[in-house]
Design a protein around this nucleic acid. Sequence first.
DNA 1: CGCCAGGTTGAAAATTGTCAACACGTGTGG
DNA 2: CCACACGTGTTGACAATTTTCAACCTGGCG
Lengths: 289, 289
Amino acid sequence: MQRDRSILSTVPRNGRLAKRLAVFMELNQEEIDYLDQLQQKEIRLNAGTDIISEGNPYQFSYILKDGWAINYKLLPEGSRQIINFLLPGDFIGLRANWFKTAEASVAGLTDIIVSPMLPHRIITGSQKFPKLGAAIAWSSARDESIMIEHIVSLGRRKAYERIAHLILELRKRLQIVGFTRQRSFILPVTQEVLGDYLGLTVVHVNRTLKKLRERGLIAMEGERLIIKDIEGLERTAGFDGDYLKQDKPSPMTTAFIERIDPSAPVEAPLKKRLGKIQEAAPAGLKSTN
Amino acid sequence: MQRDRSILSTVPRNGRLAKRLAVFMELNQEEIDYLDQLQQKEIRLNAGTDIISEGNPYQFSYILKDGWAINYKLLPEGSRQIINFLLPGDFIGLRANWFKTAEASVAGLTDIIVSPMLPHRIITGSQKFPKLGAAIAWSSARDESIMIEHIVSLGRRKAYERIAHLILELRKRLQIVGFTRQRSFILPVTQEVLGDYLGLTVVHVNRTLKKLRERGLIAMEGERLIIKDIEGLERTAGFDGDYLKQDKPSPMTTAFIERIDPSAPVEAPLKKRLGKIQEAAPAGLKSTN
DNA sequence: CGCCAGGTTGAAAATTGTCAACACGTGTGG
DNA sequence: CCACACGTGTTGACAATTTTCAACCTGGCG
């Protein structure tokens, strides 16, 4: 096993979450400090150990500071479906805030480092730094976007396209937290894991990767995946990375943040929208009572 | 087209959202009244018209009061993947609160009735009725559970099992809002729509439905789907409806609600958990610094 | 040295898709 | 009122994709 995967990133461990949230909206120093403070405590886990177990009560949510993890479910007959890859800077188990029981398990794919988050810290933090609450909500919404793309992949893309799509998505996500070089990144994952994410068998993943290599789209050097033809990959994947960007909060978010921040008064734009409900009815409108 | 699908439910239009949220936690009369008030305005849309369009800016979020809708994405080559079915009482486009641009489209499968929700109503409502904010968060989390099951279906279940699973899920969801009889419900959906949800072609959906009929698991009378053998369906689907229940909020939720409700003081249980962070480290723990 | 996890490959089988034709009911325009 | 278009369901024959089974290879590690 690789020891300190950490050094592979240009972003320090505690800065990864902030880096990721900054995609959504810039944070000021105070907020960054608070996030840093949230992550003081570190827990190290061996690759393969569950940090959350399906059906069991949640304990905490976590910030994944280093290493890769997966969110997965096991089926009765023994197969596994991976729901999502969790990368450094991602939250783990935010749903713990709303549900008593875990819907799926989370395990490290590599050795990982996490910081547990106490619920009260999140709550008080969100009250003190309204942007933080918004950023957490945004983060959940981004995860949902990723799941939507996953559904599209599984439902409508062929093996070849699915893999291409996954590679591009991982690249984009890793870029944000500083884990990529120009045209390559470490993919610390067996072909079986890929299959369990992509809804394919190992054998078929193997053959499909071979095809991607033969056609000159990618190359591999150990765990390092080298992208040889980005346009080619994007074309075959039908990839449009916007779902990972979402770089501007909606006006509602802005209004929300300002509203719950006692220091900021509610300003005009919000009110202006209130009267526009009639026009909001989309085409195809039949009647309004 | 059926005219007033409404009469098929035992729950009045404005009560469906409340009924659904009540699965999570009971609401008092004041809260129910508030929800009712949120839904005064009605917009009717023809089957097939988009209420939210992928790539376009969001206008509002909505409550779906009557009819069925779908959340879907179109692929470049023209195929469609349905992400989720939206049933009466569901929210539409809650992500509008966080994202500027819609990640997927939403369209009515039948004629539908929706109530637009103004963001400020949600915000002030959540402040006045803390449970409401929690319920909205819960609702999003439930949607995520449904998407997780969808991913599992697409990734690891065969056509035959996928359909069985979908039928059971829809039944359970429709039950809550009063749209089922003992062993049947109206499924206002073409086989093509089923295929687009299940990641299958129409032809294959057709054959698979036939198999389900031949094996005596289901029957159809026009749009009414009759479940002839629930245990059989559950067995073939590996169905466990718990993900739709989640009937108890986590202690964190409770703490959260009480915390932001000015009339309720923070009480002991929350504080008691604060010191337990050490024990929270799951098995497999390596070191703690 | 030998075990074991992971990668690779071939051959055959199973699942699912494609193409094409036809059936049926509904609604519309002539 | 009839003819016809159209959307939807159904079926057969065949093709493509993906799985299954089984074997073999490789490198790391105790």
